[in-house]
Amino acid sequence: MPPFIEKPAPLLAVRGLQKHFPVKSGFGWTKGYIRAVNSVSFDIQEGQTYGLVGESGCGKSTTGRTILKLLEPTGGEVLYQGRNIFSLKGAAMREVRRELQMVFQDPYSSMDPKKRIGYTLEEPLLIHGQGGARERTERALELLDKVGFSREHYDRFPHEFSGGQRQRLGLARALALNPKLIVCDEPVSALDVSIQSQVINLLQELQRELKLSYLFVAHDLSVVRHISDHVGVMYLGELVEQAPTEQLFSSPLHPYTKSLLSAVPVPNPRVKRERIILSGDVPSPLHPPSGCVFHTRCPYVLDRCRTERPLKLTVATGHEVQCHLYQ
């Protein structure tokens, strides 16, 4: 028998993460909850990228924001280097925040339009009390150089940059405190294809140079396949399948994953792919279906799918699926 090799502990471990938003009536009563994220669990290894994909509104961005406690979690835990982030407060949480940063989907709205770029890059250092004025300026100039800008951009305002340039500046700001993990919330979704490739290549170069880990939230499966080591597929707030990237793309198991992959264009006019078109609309997260959340649109639905919630099943190393077809 081959020797047993112990898997290294993950940099970040998400366990049973939940985020429910209360829905208020006209009198201020809570009449229900939108289950944006419901019992999501996955690991991110050091120096690797975990891609999170799914349709718009499935809970991908909410997952990323809740992990960083930008949104207060409803339940579950997030272990960063073995410490539960949700139990930390005050100085302990501030210390962890330096190592967990975020690149927002819209970098323009996340920057103060009245502040120059130099101040935007120095602000994280100022908040965490790192360095004097001269050291902060030198760090800002170093960050500009790292993401492909020159010193003359230091005194410009956000509106003087294009979308791709602002996205690179958002990445520079996230790097200011030397983080270990960055949550990238659809960082290339609003960019042209040529600009997308520049940002993706920059992310990969910085990952190799600085040994960064990423949670990469996106809906473009081609981009996710290019940058990710592991991929999780979300539907209506639940993680229905996750696997190493090539394994997921070559052997998808969940019907929803198969339908997503069937929509990816093939860059060869002679190759035809069978398109799986789902019927109906995505159910409301305020009133999710009973049993399997995907049963209302699944072409392979069973009777038990309508009443019984499927358990998570491990079918191969690192490949997990939540579907009755495999149980």
Results as ranks from 00 to 15, higher is better:
8 P>Y: 00
14 V>N: 00
24 K>F: 15
26 G>Q: 08
27 F>R: 15
29 W>Y: 13
37 V>E: 01
37 V>R: 06
37 V>Q: 04
40 V>W: 00
42 F>K: 02
47 G>C: 08
48 Q>N: 05
51 G>T: 09
53 V>L: 12
55 E>N: 09
56 S>Q: 12
56 S>F: 11
56 S>R: 12
62 T>W: 04
69 K>E: 11
70 L>A: 13
73 P>W: 11
75 G>M: 05
78 V>T: 09
83 R>E: 15
85 I>S: 07
87 S>H: 06
88 L>Y: 05
89 K>Y: 03
92 A>Q: 11
93 M>W: 03
94 R>K: 14
98 R>H: 04
99 E>D: 10
108 Y>N: 08
109 S>P: 12
111 M>K: 03
112 D>V: 13
113 P>Q: 14
114 K>R: 15
114 K>Q: 13
115 K>D: 07
115 K>N: 11
115 K>A: 14
119 Y>E: 14
122 E>M: 13
123 E>G: 02
129 G>P: 02
135 E>A: 13
136 R>N: 02
141 L>V: 05
145 D>M: 04
153 H>K: 10
155 D>T: 11
156 R>C: 13
158 P>Y: 10
172 A>D: 06
172 A>N: 05
176 A>G: 09
186 E>L: 01
188 V>S: 00
192 D>S: 08
192 D>E: 09
194 S>F: 11
195 I>P: 02
201 N>W: 05
204 Q>I: 13
205 E>D: 15
208 R>N: 14
208 R>T: 14
212 L>F: 07
218 A>M: 04
220 D>Q: 07
222 S>I: 10
228 S>L: 05
231 V>W: 05
234 M>A: 06
236 L>F: 03
236 L>N: 01
237 G>Y: 02
241 E>W: 04
243 A>D: 03
243 A>N: 00
244 P>C: 07
245 T>K: 11
247 Q>G: 12
249 F>E: 08
249 F>P: 04
251 S>W: 07
252 P>M: 06
256 Y>R: 02
262 S>K: 05
263 A>P: 03
267 P>S: 06
272 K>V: 14
273 R>F: 09
285 P>W: 03
287 H>Q: 04
289 P>R: 04
292 C>V: 03
293 V>K: 15
294 F>I: 01
295 H>L: 05
296 T>C: 07
296 T>Y: 01
297 R>Q: 06
297 R>Y: 06
303 D>A: 14
306 R>M: 13
308 E>F: 10
309 R>V: 12
310 P>A: 06
310 P>C: 08
311 L>Y: 00
313 L>D: 00
315 V>F: 00
321 V>P: 02
327 Q>P: 00
